[in-house]
């Protein structure tokens, strides 16, 4: 294991991740971050934009237009608030 080469590799990885992170901040302004490339919803919570198909194993389709603030549709279902 070449420690110096490893550090150089990790710097490259961090650079890739930093660019991803900055782009994510930009994308999240106009597209729900839980929506994947096939417009399926990957959220663990309920959202009014989720459209379930007949296949119960498939992720719901995102029916959001992205023209409005998607966050108002999020519903924090399935969890009891902490007291």
């Amino acid at each position: 294991m070449d420690a110096e080469r490893y550090r150089t590799s990790m710097e490259r990885l961090f650079e890739i991740y930093s660019e991803i992170s900055q782009k994510a901040d930009e994308v999240m302004q106009s597209r729900c971050p839980y929506k994947d490339a096939r417009s399926r919803c990957t959220a663990q919570f309920d959202c009014r934009n989720q459209f379930f198909t007949k296949d119960p194993s498939a992720k719901p389709i995102c029916a959001g237009s992205d023209r409005i603030d998607y966050r108002s549709a999020w519903v924090n279902g399935g969890s009891v608030p902490f007291e």
Partner: peptide
């Protein structure tokens, strides 16, 4: 790390930047 993992992640970065894939 260099030949397998990082080469793959470099393409992930490009695809994300170019809106081919998204955060998930």
């Amino acid at each position: 790390l260099d030949d397998g993992l990082l080469n793959g992640m470099a393409i992930v970065g490009v695809k994300f930047r170019d809106n081919v894939i998204f955060v998930p």
